[in-house]
Design a protein around this nucleic acid. Structure first.
Lengths: 335, 335
DNA sequence: CTGTTAGCGCTTTCAT
DNA sequence: ATGAAAGCGCTAACAG
């Protein structure tokens, strides 16, 4: 593979000039530039990432840390990040951290510290103070999506407000017996996404003096289905379910059908996400524009890289209620 | 951030010794090794990827090229790749190539050639001879999943056999009027995954003298739904549908319901993939174990890196019919 | 505008 | 078993 001095020789200039011509940094006469470009083109020369990175300190790559690759929300956000990064010529290095603590340590203490990336974006990774500090110590911009983290630049939807919005929607339809399906909060920080959604739910229910019933699940269709089955089979079944994700909401719809209940006539169901599948289930949801989140996070990271101030505190992301019919007025006879 | 000479100083040895101790290559006395390890640990030292890569020619990263990030099959294969790579301490660099030809060129001619990766895995990327040659010229192992490519090491299921298996399953149930929903083959190479599935279908139908009806769609739920609606609304609607992906098959099930048809009583439907959602639709499918494909591809790439012979021709991946009830005997009155 | 010359932070002979 | 020193392939002063 051709190196920079092959190009220099062919263009009849020094390697320094080649570097300047190719990078666009530093003065080069138009004539030389053209010769260099032509020579590079002919030789199929591309700058070596390692050499360039070592010399400049820039890697032209950003790291993305995700807990799952094969769940809709994460792959969708990732797609958004990728879009934004490709546009700017950056590569993306993927760090998938599983639940295994040893592996997680390796990612944080080894892989992320190899100085291979110019910035990092984390997607819904709940970090303790040590991990946050570790990211900070990388000396590169860090943008976190999901779950406000006072120690980092964060881009997040106001999940408490999301919880309120969904709950208020149900209350406005006359529902008073509502079950919230979400992640078991004891294993999550109080500021985590699931915890905030639940808080929004609880405070809204409290405000009208209604019971804030909770049923834990694991953010999958299966988990949502199981949780919905439990709550709908109880002594005093809810007239509505607010699931903290669309996947769980879809599981709830499937469970309701299984139990012979009509949606929304017998039970209203609302989710959160804007999952593409929701359309096919007529699922009412609070859309959070996942792909856009990814793009914005990537752009924020690059902006900070270009010297912009780290986003002031937390950037707030939009969300929106999308009514597709899986929620409706409570059946008065069941209230 | 600490560098290698910080560690050397602290351990009271030369940088050469530090390098040897940390990499495990070359002789180091146990005592010194321990001192070095301790010093590195205390300083939180991690080898710089750029410097190491420049010196050794190894980047400890593999590139993964995908056409989509946010579709089930791709994100699932990617998850499998990630699992295998993380185990071995490799980073993964993601190259998402969209339909835009200019962007595609940039990925192939620039990004992939930055010498940032020790191997590349492509997932269902159809490449022409030039692109294949370009990958070869990288001088690193290349493993391609999906679509036999004589120019590259390929890991692929026998999609023609998959097409036959699905079709034979329907024929065994008595179906003679079957529509195949797949990608418009005119825009795909004859050896592409969709083309081979269709070929398996066509030859099997031909063998029993039945019409091989085809309806094009784009591998999404929406596309499958539209295609199914068209074929089921025709003059002589099929008694069975074989969709080339589970997403399209699910779309077909939804379309059938919409038309008031029962599955499988009125129309049998079979897909291909093993999509997790299939369970919830009782979808019969030919599972191709996507996650396992990713792991095997990554392992093959690493093996080749370690000097193993490039996989002999093509590696063949397993597949299996999973009957979940969306196919059944043809209604004799409709035959 | 262009060339010369130090590095960037490691790894790897080659000596010792 | 260890150290000195020469690169790996580029970039960034610094001269000119």
């Amino acid at each position: 593979m051709a190196g920079i001095d092959d190009v220099a020789r062919r263009a009849g200039v020094s390697t320094a000039t080649v570097s300047r011509a190719l990078s666009g940094r530093g003065p080069v006469s138009t004539a030389t530039r053209d010769r260099v470009l032509a020579a590079a083109e002919e030789l199929g020369y591309v700058v070596s990432a390692a050499a360039s990175s070592l010399a400049t300190g820039r890697a032209r790559a950003v790291g993305v840390v995700v807990p799952f690759l094969d769940r809709w929300f994460f792959s969708t956000v990732l797609a958004g990040i990728s879009d934004a990064l490709v546009r700017e010529g950056y590569d993306i290095t993927l760090y998938s951290v599983s639940a295994d603590p040893a592996e997680r340590r390796r990612v944080f203490e080894d892989h992320l510290r190899r100085r291979r990336i110019d910035a990092v974006v984390t997607i819904a990774i709940e970090m303790d103070a040590a991990e946050s500090a570790l990211l900070r110590s990388l000396g590169v911009p860090v943008v976190s999506i999901g779950g406000p983290n006072p120690l980092l630049t964060t881009l997040t939807v106001d999940d408490r407000a999301v919880g309120r919005l969904a709950t208020e929607h149900l209350i406005a339809l006359g529902h008073r017996r509502v079950t919230h399906i979400g992640a078991d909060t004891t294993t999550n920080a109080a500021s985590s996404v699931p915890a905030l959604r639940r808080l929004g739910f609880t405070e809204t229910m409290d405000a009208i003096g209604a019971d804030a019933v909770f049923e834990p699940a694991d953010f999958t269709i299966e988990g949502g289905s199981a949780a919905a089955t439990r709550t709908l089979s109880g002594d005093v079944p809810p007239t509505a379910i607010f699931a903290a994700s669309d996947e769980m909401a879809i599981g709830a719809i499937l469970a309701a059908r299984e139990l012979g209940l009509r949606v929304p006539a017998d039970v209203s169901i609302i989710g959160v996400d804007g999952h593409e599948l929701g359309r096919w289930f007529g699922l009412t949801t609070v859309d959070q524009f996942a792909r856009g989140q990814g793009e914005r996070a990537a752009e924020a990271a690059l902006a900070e890289l270009d010297g912009a101030d780290p986003a002031p505190g937390l950037g707030t992301l939009p969300f929106e209620l999308v009514d597709r019919g899986s929620t409706g007025p409570v059946d008065v006879s069941r209230r």
